[in-house]
Design a protein around this nucleic acid. Structure first.
Length: 309
DNA sequence: AAGGTGGTCAACCGCTCTGAG
DNA sequence: GCTCAGAGCGGTTGACCACCT
């Protein structure tokens, strides 16, 4: 297979913007003969262009049924709806918007709709509330630390504190990698979570995110206690994330995720496995959400996040 | 007035898909 | 079933323009 040779060959064909004369030739030829074979068209029409270039010029610009100008509210909504279903299938989306070309829709999406969604706090790929907090956590924490550094005159204290927090963050990172890695290791992340989070709670930045403290009264079945006792318990269930992410539509987003890198078992000693914990096939799926939307929005409403932002 | 910056959009690049031989 | 040419598609680039400093 591979690439069409027509644009590959160094044939001295013209590139770049089309002149009105070229447009005129192309329009007249197609009106008279139809486009037929695009490859053959340039020669027949007397154009020093490759067929591909002619096709693009015609379909994206010269076609008589092209609708130009701003997208209407309805069109915008249609694009959003279709993109949520079809993803970046611009040509498929274009078939539902008479007079609009895939290129035009693609440009509109990239320059305007995408930004709008991001500003509204939605992931433009999944159309769901953004949940990439973990990926930006280090930056947020750095900002938080910077803020404190500026406000607090005691550099020695700050240095000590930062050092402690660095260790804690390293452990947190290790933990996150651990619970998000593939299921192979037969360990129970819930126990690790309890241990690690308890150790992180005192005096760390994490404690600022905390929900009211609760005793670690968990059942042997594992899992449910997290909901009650762990600072991040108001976040969505990672298993739900994984189930959601295993769907074909979202899968590409997690390929090669750093969260998937195998990592040594957490020092916060895991305990034998339960069936539930095993299904945690782990990727961050970091930019998407699902049933836990509300919980995420609660987190996002946390004053700390606003303060940092 | 000049230079910098950001947004828009036409056009290109390179890959995949499709159908004929 | 395989190969190849042509068509189509999505991502990216770069020219142009408007606005800002």
């Amino acid at each position: 297979m591979g690439r069409s040779p027509c644009c590959d060959e160094n044939t001295g064909l013209k590139k770049g913007p089309w002149t009105p004369e070229e447009d005129d030739k192309l329009i007249k030829y197609i009106q008279k003969h139809g486009h037929g074979s695009w490859r053959a068209l340039p020669k027949l029409a007397g154009l020093n262009r490759c067929g591909k270039s002619c096709r693009l010029r015609w379909t994206n610009y010269l076609r008589p049924d092209i609708k130009r100008g701003k997208f209407s509210q309805e069109e915008e909504q249609t694009i959003l709806n279709l993109h949520a279903i079809l993803g970046n299938k611009w040509s498929a989306i274009a078939t539902h918007l008479p007079g609009r070309t895939d290129n035009e829709i693609k440009n509109f999406w990239n320059t305007q709709l995408k930004k709008k969604l991001i500003q509204m706090g939605f992931d433009p790929m999944t159309h769901r509330p953004r949940t990439d907090i973990f990926s930006s956590l280090p930056h947020l924490l750095a900002l938080a630390n910077l803020k404190e550094l500026i406000e607090n005159p005691s550099w020695e204290e700050q240095a000590m504190r930062l050092q402690t927090e660095a260790v804690q963050m390293a452990r947190l990172n290790q933990y996150l990698q651990y619970i998000l890695q593939p299921p192979a290791p037969a360990i129970n992340p819930d126990m690790a979570a309890l241990s690690l989070f308890n150790s992180l709670k005192e005096g760390s930045v994490l404690s600022q995110l905390e929900t009211p403290p609760a005793p670690p009264s968990f059942s042997a079945g594992g899992g449910s206690y997290l909901q009650d006792s762990v600072p991040f318990s108001h976040l969505p269930d990672l298993q739900t994330i994984n189930q959601s992410c295993s769907s074909k539509e979202e899968a590409p987003m997690v390929q090669g995720s750093p969260w998937m890198q195998p990592s040594p078992p957490s020092p916060a000693a895991p305990v034998p496995v339960t069936e539930n914990s095993l299904s945690n096939t782990g990727d961050a799926c970091s930019t998407s959400s699902y049933g836990g939307t509300q919980m995420w929005s609660e987190l996002l409403d946390d004053p700390l996040f606003h303060e940092i932002a």
